Simulated scan of single mutants.
Amino acid sequence: MRDTAPPRQLAFDLPLDPRYGREDFLVGPANEGAYALIEAWPDWPDTVLVLTGPAGSGKSHLASIWATRAHAWTVPAAGIGAADVGHLVSNGALVIEDIDRAGRADEAALFHLLNLARERRAPVLLTSGQPIEAIGLVTADLRSRLRLAPSAAIVAPDDALLRAVIVKLFVDRQLVVDLGVIDALALRLDRSLGRARAVVAELDRDALGRGRRITRPLALAVLERMGGGEEASEDSPDDPVGD
């Protein structure tokens, strides 16, 4: 008997460029406070703003929206050294990403940068996957400076925002799915946007490899294979909200 199963296709794991435009950011109760602060610029209460939230919550998207408005440079915290401070502040606005992942970053350099930015009235937006108190900064002056800075936290999304993000993730990949697929994912996923992004990416790869469309049974199978509703890993890109 001839095998009538569709031939298995090669699935190339090509990077999906996230869209970081203002119109691509989905606002809900989980992030509306952070979004409001970004939109309030330049009327910030301080030159420094700290934006916190779990991996995949949309911090990088919000930072990108602000960077576009403020014509800011974006740099990782781990890449800042003493020799870079004057050059970075000279642009007039700066985004410093992932201060909780800086590792052996020069804390003295970062503290000097924040002081110089305040002196020059240069706005700085810092992002972190953890609250400042949980980062474990060694430099007391830096820790105090960041604790005193205005901050906004992105929390776990509500059901409506999670569903909207799942729909957007499929649309960004130009995938058309039934409402049953959205329902299956929204009901079973933890309230983690990073996790939603990982599951949709796996569904895309799986469906492409099998040469089949994404169905509810496939979504359930992929969820089971990926361990149900586990949290997104710390390496998950921070982009599902518009990202």
Rank of each mutant, 00 (worst) to 15 (best):
K168P: 02
L208D: 05
D178N: 13
L189Q: 09
A196D: 10
G228C: 11
L161Q: 11
L223Q: 00
D206Q: 09
G209I: 05
L220H: 06
S192P: 09
R212D: 10
V199I: 15
S192R: 09
A201E: 13
R210H: 01
F170S: 10
I166E: 12
D206T: 12
A201I: 03
L218V: 03
V181L: 06
I214G: 01
I214H: 00
V199P: 09
L189K: 07
E224N: 11
L175P: 01
E202T: 12
L179P: 05
V177L: 10
I182W: 02
Q174T: 13
A201N: 12
G227W: 07
R188K: 09
D183E: 12
P217C: 09
D183G: 00
A221T: 12
G227M: 04
S192Q: 11
A207C: 06
V199C: 02
L193H: 13
R205N: 06
D159M: 11
L208W: 03
R197A: 15
V199Q: 04
L187Q: 15
R216S: 04
L185D: 01
V200A: 04
A221D: 14
R173W: 05
D183M: 03
P217W: 08
L220N: 08
D206H: 02
L169H: 05
V177E: 04
L220A: 11
R173A: 06
G209H: 06
L179C: 08
L223A: 01
G180E: 14
A207R: 02
V222I: 14
V181Y: 03
S192N: 13
A186F: 07
D206W: 00
A164I: 02
D178K: 13
G194I: 06
R225V: 02
G211W: 01
R216K: 13
F170T: 12
A186K: 02
L189W: 07
L175R: 14
V171D: 15
A201F: 05
G209R: 06
R197D: 14
D206C: 02
I182G: 02
A160E: 13
G227D: 05
E202Q: 13
D178M: 12
S192E: 09
L218P: 09
M226V: 00
R212W: 01
V177D: 08
V176M: 13
V222A: 00
A196S: 10
R197S: 15
R210Q: 03
Q174K: 14
M226C: 08
Q174D: 13
L187S: 14
V177I: 09
G227R: 09
D172Q: 15
G211A: 01
A160M: 10
D190A: 15
I214R: 00
R216V: 12
A219F: 04
L187T: 14
L193S: 11
A160D: 15
R210M: 01
E202R: 13
E224Y: 02
L189T: 07
K168M: 08
F170K: 11
D204I: 02
A198S: 14
V222W: 01
G180N: 06
V177A: 07
